[in-house]
Design a protein around this nucleic acid. Structure first.
Lengths: 106, 106
DNA sequence: GTCTATGTACGATTTTCGTCGTACATCGTA
DNA sequence: TACGATGTACGACGAAAATCGTACATAGAC
């Protein structure tokens, strides 16, 4: 019945320490780095390494609830995208500064 | 005997996710914000709110071991300063982007 | 040396996080 | 309807974090 709803915080509700926390994990940092490079990605395509589905779901939930990403159901899959404009509006330069390093080193 | 030694990670050992984690706590964010505004501060002067000494020591240790701050014993007190140059060298623009927001909202 | 001020170290407790297996829900298709 | 593919929800477990009280160490003043 429920067409798969996901909670996304409002722009005004984003807090700096929550965003920073969401980005303080190597796995999540790698996901954001991937999204910045390739744009919207299906959840399953982010499962490159040996990360179980449920673990990835957990990380994506943290990113989403911190306001870093947006999750959009598309058929059978979930498309994940960065909330670039929102984050840039609230914390100008933050994403660029963080990802300038590449995020490779995590 | 020991003239109070503190461990500080080398510049090359700073990792992005550790730095972000150190900054993902409201109390620590407030400390860094204070340091950016007023420069070097004594540890005790950072105890503004109802934070017990031992708790503040804990937070300062996290910041120090992540490479965000430097602790320097000066007489009876401990002077805390930002490792501005180091962080800027390794993660250009990061501190500015984070603190542009003021850090007030934490 | 004694006393006081400033911080640290250690330990205990509670909470949170990261991981993952299993069960369930959704979506498309046959 | 049933089936397979994709993800989520829930629970459990171990590891780490946040808090704070108490005891200890250091530095200066007396």
């Amino acid at each position: 019945m429920s067409p798969r709803k996901f909670f996304h915080p409002d722009l005004a509700d984003l807090t700096l320490h929550r965003v920073l926390f969401a980005l303080s994990d190597p796995t999540r940092l790698a996901v954001v780095s991937e999204l910045m490079k390739t744009g919207e990605r299906a959840s399953g395509d982010l499962l490159a390494e040996s990360v179980p589905r449920s673990t990835m779901t957990h990380h994506l939930k943290i990113l989403r609830e911190a306001g870093v990403t947006r999750t959009r159901p598309e058929g059978m899959r979930c498309l994940i995208s960065l909330r670039r404009q929102d984050i840039d509006a609230r914390f100008p330069g933050l994403l660029d500064a963080i990802m300038a390093h590449g995020g490779a080193e995590a």
